[in-house]
């Protein structure tokens, strides 16, 4: 069997968490796993990759034109590598992986599997369709199986203990069709949404960005991340990257608290695998209650301050 190539997502110095979940999916396929770290001054990320148990070899590619992770340039590199040696190519189903992997697949002339949540065997995978209302088991006959991996469906691999070799690989020629202009990254002291143990999330019912302060206080008390429904994001209460759902982020924290969110299927698609779900909504018919472990029917502007006060009273665990 040919080897498996995992594409690392990183910021050149460190690995992004979703990379570790992707390694676990690769392990479930079975075979020798190599990891590609392509970036600019990315020795830090390559060293971190070499420490992941189960990685046999790290391919490090350093070039200025990989500084912004442009899919246009990375895809040429990855397709070149995949054509030589690999039977499977995996990337996390993050905005990075979703942008990149279909481009790699098309250059290879193969189909791509998006967002896999299960590995049945080396050519059969499970993936959600219709906003997660259904799960499809699909068999892939392509010579190279290209896919993105949903992080919440696979446990994170350990990040210490491995001793992979690091091999330097030359960059591919830049395509030169894309120019970086700028980035506006949301700054937050809170944990990252996809990695947080607890997420408190608000919907249209929060009313305004001032309303969201109520949730932010609770987030800080719990060490939680803040999420939102599409309606709350569209209304400008919180930044776009807070959106949970079919077309936003997919998360599965230990505890998800939803306030003023009705529970549309597109929202549930992003959080229904959370371990414990709490819903606060003034409408007792709201669909979110059908999947909530604990529900409070009431006005969130009354319940959230009470919740905050109760949390203040709580002795340390």
């Amino acid at each position: 069997m040919k080897n498996i190539l995992v594409i690392a997502e990183h910021d050149h110095a460190t690995l992004k968490a979703a990379t570790l979940n992707t390694v676990t999916a690769a392990r479930n396929i079975g075979g020798e796993i190599h990891m590609l770290v392509a970036g600019s001054d990315c020795a830090g990320a390559a060293t971190a990759s070499a420490k992941i148990p189960g990685i046999a070899k790290v391919l490090q590619v350093d070039a200025d034109h990989y500084a912004h992770h442009f899919a246009e340039d990375l895809a040429v590199l990855i397709a070149g590598l995949a054509n030589k040696d690999y039977g499977h190519v995996l990337a996390p189903a993050t905005s990075f992986g979703k942008n990149l992997m279909p481009r790699v697949a098309a250059l290879l002339g193969v189909t791509q599997l998006s967002d896999i949540v299960g590995v049945e065997n080396a050519d059969t995978f499970v993936r959600p369709i219709y906003a997660g209302s259904l799960l499809a088991t699909v068999q892939c006959s392509a010579p190279i199986k290209a896919m993105t991996v949903r992080g919440t469906a696979f446990a994170a691999a350990a990040s210490e203990g491995g001793t992979a070799s690091i091999e330097t690989v030359p960059p591919a020629v830049p395509l030169g069709v894309t120019r970086f202009i700028g980035q506006e990254l949301t700054k937050s002291e809170r944990p990252e949404l996809t990695a947080a143990r607890i997420v408190v999330s608000g919907g249209r019912g929060m009313g305004s960005s001032e309303g969201f302060k109520l949730l932010e206080d609770i987030a800080d008390q719990l060490g939680a991340a803040v999420g939102a429904s599409r309606a709350a994001v569209d209304a400008g209460f919180v930044p776009n990257d807070c959106q949970i759902g079919q077309t936003g982020k997919i998360i599965a924290p230990e505890l998800y608290i939803a306030a003023g969110i009705s529970g549309a299927i597109q929202h549930l698609a992003g959080m229904k695998d959370s371990k414990i779900i709490v819903a606060i909504n003034k409408d007792e018919e709201a669909p979110i209650f059908q999947i909530a472990d604990y529900g409070i029917v009431g006005d969130l502007f009354k319940v959230l301050p009470e919740l905050s006060a109760e949390l203040d009273k709580l002795p340390p665990a």
């Binding site: 088991t137 779900i277 472990d293 029917v297």
Partner: peptide, 17 residues
Amino acid sequence: LTTLKVAEPPKREAGIK
């Protein structure tokens, strides 16, 4: 790709108020 099976995911039960 060949679709071998399409199924509903396990249902989550409603909890308590």
